[in-house]
Nucleic acid binder design. Structure first.
Length: 197
DNA sequence: TTATTGATCCCCT
DNA sequence: GGGGATCAATAAT
């Protein structure tokens, strides 16, 4: 009920980083979602960068539509992508007209874990948020969050702890993206159990 | 056996 | 061509 934790929102300047750097910086930050039941949050432990104009794997790759419109907006917004009955959450990055974003693939539960478990009953704790579809369900992120700013409640990102070790590697699920599939645009906290893989 | 996630297929604007 | 839905493969219980 009472949310005694104090979250410090990321400074506006944070979102001005280049996408790749931001993807890395985002690790360890806290993704917070406030609902009627209370506040749920988790450390971001896995991200993927999508550079729209030079990246075939990105939705924004020469595909400006209603759905990807938000990718062309300014940084610091939420881009929720509904796919196979699950919701993936992206952080829009880069300046206006540049369709770049950072996909949040996994988080580590931090606060409001009871609520997350209520929304998403799991046996294994580490299975609660160890995947893009899982974390959005646990945090109650849905299409209603599309285009929402990440710099104000009910959905925002706060400062957190920086992982000791960060690893990078090729992204997941982009087999038909030509040479882009080998780009090391995936970042994760080394050794973290909540990383999906 | 069920849940999650990636890939493919089909229908719509 | 894009978006949504469906199908199938993989991992968790």
């Amino acid at each position: 009920m009472n949310q005694e934790r104090h979250f410090t929102l990321l400074p506006d300047a944070f979102y001005q980083y280049p996408t790749l750097q931001l993807a890395e910086e985002l690790l360890g930050c806290i993704l917070v979602k406030q609902t009627e039941e209370g506040t749920s949050s988790g450390f971001i432990v896995e991200t993927e960068a999508y550079l729209g104009n030079a990246d075939r794997a990105a939705h924004g790759f020469k595909r400006r539509t209603k759905r990807t419109e938000i990718l062309y907006a300014e940084a610091g917004l939420t881009y929720t992508h509904l796919i196979h009955n699950h919701c993936l959450i992206n952080v829009v990055t880069a300046e206006k007209e540049v369709p770049e974003s950072v996909l949040i693939r996994a988080v580590e539960p931090y606060t409001g874990i009871d609520q997350m478990l209520a929304r998403r009953p799991v046996k294994k704790f580490q299975n609660l948020t160890s995947g893009p579809g899982k974390l959005s369900q646990a945090l109650d992120i849905n299409m209603g969050d599309y285009g929402r700013s990440l710099q104000e409640p009910p959905l925002f990102i706060a400062e957190g702890k920086k992982p000791e070790k960060i690893k990078t590697g090729p992204r997941i699920g982009i087999e038909n993206s030509g040479e882009a599939k080998d780009y090391p645009y995936r970042f994760w906290a080394a050794g973290n159990k909540f990383v999906s893989k």
